[in-house]
């Protein structure tokens, strides 16, 4: 038991020391975003049941393709060889095509679930959320 307490304290200190890093900002933004959207588009229980699995899958895919591209750019662009630059350019194009195709596919599915009016509301809510977050950051930096 004594050892267990020591382990608890050590592990707690270890994780707490890196708390600001460990607290994933991605999750926080994602949670705020879905809460904001769900308030704005006012889904019925039946719509909600069908909408969220599809919307979550859509976001997972969009997030994955963006992350993939971002990671490729993270390696730096200043010292790229011609071949590497060409590969990166092609990846950029493919990513945009994939995003467009995913958007097209899932928009259709989502429209079938919530209808045209609510999908417009959804797009507006997504934009409003972006603006709100930018405003929040701007207010803090002023």
């Amino acid at each position: 038991m004594k050892h267990f307490y020591k382990i608890v304290i050590l592990v707690y200190l270890f994780f707490y020391s890196g708390y600001s890093v460990a607290q994933n900002p991605k999750d926080k933004v994602a949670e705020l975003r879905v809460a904001f959207i769900s308030k704005k588009i006012e889904l019925t229980a039946s719509e909600s049941e069908k909408f969220w699995p599809v919307y979550n899958e859509y976001n997972d895919k969009i997030r994955a393709v963006k992350k993939n591209l971002r990671q490729s750019y993270k390696k730096g662009v200043d010292n790229l060889t011609d071949k590497e630059a060409e590969d990166l350019y092609q990846l950029d194009l493919k990513t945009k095509q994939a995003e467009m195709a995913i958007h097209e596919q899932y928009s259709g599915k989502i429209k079938d679930i919530i209808g045209a009016k609510k999908i417009v509301k959804l797009h507006v809510a997504e934009e409003e959320f972006k603006l709100e977050i930018i405003k929040n950051i701007k207010d803090k930096s002023d």
Partner: peptide, 9 residues
């Protein structure tokens, strides 16, 4: 968090 926002938006 902006980095993350780009992931989602």
């Amino acid at each position: 968090s902006i980095q993350d926002l780009i992931d989602y938006n």
